Amino acid sequence: MVAIKSLLVFILAGLCEIGGGYLVWLWLKEDKPVWYGIVGGIILALYGVVVTLQPAGFGRVYATYGGIFIVMALIWAWQVDGFKPDKYDLIGAAIALVGVCIIYYAPRQ
Rank of each mutant, 00 (worst) to 15 (best):
Y22P: 03
A13M: 04
W25K: 04
S6E: 15
D31S: 15
V9Q: 10
Y22C: 05
E30Q: 11
P33E: 09
Y22N: 05
E17D: 07
L15T: 03
Y22E: 03
V9C: 13
V24K: 02
I11P: 02
V34E: 06
L15S: 11
C16F: 14
M1F: 04
I11V: 15
V34Y: 07
I4G: 13
W27H: 11
G20I: 07
G21W: 08
V24P: 03
L26V: 05
L7T: 07
K5M: 13
V2R: 15
A3W: 14
V24F: 06
A13E: 04
G19M: 00
A13Y: 01
V9E: 07
L7V: 14
L26D: 11
E17K: 00
D31Q: 15
V9R: 04
K29I: 08
L28W: 10
G20D: 07
F10T: 12
L28Q: 12
L8T: 03
L15V: 12
L15Q: 01
M1D: 11
V2H: 10
A13W: 09
L8K: 10
E17C: 00
I4P: 10
L28M: 11
L26M: 15
K5W: 08
E17M: 02
D31Y: 13
L23A: 07
L12H: 00
D31T: 14
I4E: 05
G14K: 00
L12V: 11
V24A: 07
L15W: 06
L7M: 15
V34P: 00
I18E: 04
G21E: 02
L26S: 09
G14D: 03
A3M: 11
E17A: 08
E30S: 03
L26G: 11
M1Q: 12
V2I: 12
D31R: 13
L15Y: 02
K29M: 13
M1I: 13
V24T: 06
G19E: 01
G20C: 12
L12Y: 06
E30T: 04
L23Y: 12
M1P: 09
W27K: 03
V34M: 08
C16T: 06
L28H: 12
V34N: 08
L26W: 04
K29R: 12
C16K: 05
I4Q: 02
A13D: 02
L23C: 08
C16H: 09
L23K: 05
M1K: 13
L12R: 00
F10H: 12
C16N: 07
V9D: 10
K5V: 15
E17H: 08
C16R: 06
V34L: 09
E30I: 00
M1S: 13
L23V: 06
K32Q: 15
K29Q: 04
L12G: 08
L28C: 01
K29L: 04
C16P: 04
E17L: 10
V9G: 11
S6T: 13
S6G: 00
K5F: 14
F10N: 12
W27R: 00
G19I: 01
W27F: 15
P33C: 07
G21Q: 04
V24L: 12
K29A: 09
I18P: 02
A3C: 03
L12P: 01
P33A: 09
W27V: 01
Y22K: 02
